Simulated assay, not measured.
Amino acid sequence: MLHRWFYISTSRLDARKTNEGIQEIVEVSLPRNRSLRVTGALLFTGQKFTQYLEGSPAAIAELKQSISRDARHEAIHTIAYGPFDHRRFLGWSLAYAGPSRFVAAKVEKALSAVLDQGDEEIEALAEMLAGFAIEGHS
């Protein structure tokens, strides 16, 4: 059975060390996600994270617990959690294309729509992440 966890959180990274903080997240997450057979994508706007994770229920629960305890995140909002019928990020243990002002503006708008309007916007945000994963790199 496949599960997903899709969340938005506010960054607590030190603004002077943001690049190093993101690099550390990616370096730790890639091998951990591979070992757990989790796929997904991460976007960072400079202020907010959004991450889509998919894998076994146990692996997703483990990552959810770890991220919830991570001091780099606050105000974690789960926007989708539970069983899902297919992998959206097949082959990506963590798709992350790096920071971009253009991407940040688009993502901030999409995050606000999800938080304000709810379910109607969740799949649109997931598709946005998938688009960045296809065009980006891990």
Rank of each mutant, 00 (worst) to 15 (best):
M1D: 14
L2F: 11
L2S: 07
R4C: 12
R4A: 08
R4M: 09
F6Q: 04
F6Y: 15
F6S: 03
I8R: 10
S9F: 11
S9M: 03
S11H: 10
R12K: 12
D14G: 08
D14K: 13
D14P: 11
T18Y: 04
T18L: 02
E20Y: 02
I25Y: 09
I25F: 14
V26F: 04
E27M: 13
S29Q: 03
S29G: 13
L30D: 00
L30S: 09
L30F: 10
L30Y: 12
P31I: 08
R32Y: 15
R32K: 15
R34Q: 14
S35Q: 13
L36N: 00
L36A: 08
R37D: 15
V38M: 01
T39N: 07
T39I: 00
T39V: 13
G40E: 01
G40A: 08
L43W: 00
L43G: 14
L43D: 00
K48M: 12
F49W: 06
F49N: 06
Q51C: 14
L53T: 10
L53F: 10
L53A: 01
E54V: 05
E54Y: 12
E54D: 06
P57Y: 04
A58G: 10
A59C: 00
A59V: 08
A61S: 12
E62A: 11
L63R: 01
K64W: 11
S66F: 06
S66A: 15
S66E: 05
I67D: 01
I67L: 12
D70F: 03
A71Q: 15
A71T: 12
R72V: 06
E74C: 15
A75N: 14
I76P: 13
H77T: 06
H77L: 06
Y81D: 11
F84D: 13
F84K: 07
D85A: 09
R87L: 11
R88P: 01
F89L: 09
G91H: 09
G91T: 06
W92A: 04
W92R: 13
S93T: 12
A95V: 04
Y96C: 01
A97N: 10
G98R: 12
S100E: 14
R101Q: 10
R101I: 01
F102W: 07
A104E: 04
A104P: 10
K109G: 00
L111M: 15
L111F: 01
L111Y: 09
A113I: 02
V114K: 01
L115E: 10
Q117R: 14
Q117C: 04
G118D: 02
G118A: 02
E120Q: 11
E120H: 09
E121M: 13
I122Y: 07
I122L: 01
I122F: 00
E123W: 02
L125Q: 05
A126Q: 06
E127N: 04
M128H: 08
L129F: 03
G131I: 02
G131Y: 01
G131T: 00
F132W: 14
A133S: 15
A133G: 12
E135S: 12
E135R: 15
H137Y: 13
S138E: 10
S138T: 05
